[in-house]
Amino acid sequence: MFSDILSQLSLEFRLEARNKYALYSILLYVSGTVFISYLSFRGSLNPATWNALFWIILLYASIQAASKSFLGQSRGNFIYQYSLISPQDLIIAKIAYNMGLMLVVAFSGLLFFSLFLGNPVQDFPLYCIAVLLGSIGFAGILSLVSAIASRSNSNFSLMSVLSFPLLLPLLLAAIKLSKNAMDGLDWSVSTSLIIMLAALNAIVLVLAYLLFPYLWRE
């Protein structure tokens, strides 16, 4: 089981490395939106808005990045994979891969934000925890929703319609936690939020593990 996951994961990474344009387009997407916000806000950006803007850009970039995790696949490819690997292993590999992608997106976003819009974060480790927990949850939900959307006829618009409401609890909790980190509040204030985010992630991952086999079969 473990070696299956690893081989699937390495396949995903090799596919990504082969057509690098996907990753570069996401990075360009993030830097482009950050630059647009830099030009339109013209320096009048208070920390709360900085934080909200960061998460909104991250949300859109994540949907962009994750939407191709199942949508890009041809039918034949799907059937071939079906014969090779169990659905549980596949979804774990997909989520792990998307998690890596989200982390790249998130931290490059953070870099661009600090570059153009300044970095008002006071408690950087806690902010990183918020970004990490947020990315894991995003990866889980988006992988699953991408699998759902790839099954329907009109997929890309459906992807955002289906994922927005599901991502919102995660997004709001992550925004609140990162706002605490930004204001440099004591960690004891944020423990309940961290626990809640971790619990949400656990729910998402368990649901993905249990439900994905039903999505996969034709």
């Binding site: 939900i141 699953l144 759902i148 099954r151 329907s152 289906l162 409401p165 599901l166 919102l168 609890p169 949400l200 729910i203 649901l207 439900l211 039903y214 999505l215």
Partner: peptide, 15 residues
């Protein structure tokens, strides 16, 4: 597929 979505939706909604 809608059954799968319904289960996820319920969990997120309750949270």
């Amino acid at each position: 597929i809608s059954a799968v979505y319904n289960i996820i939706a319920y969990a997120m909604f309750m949270v």
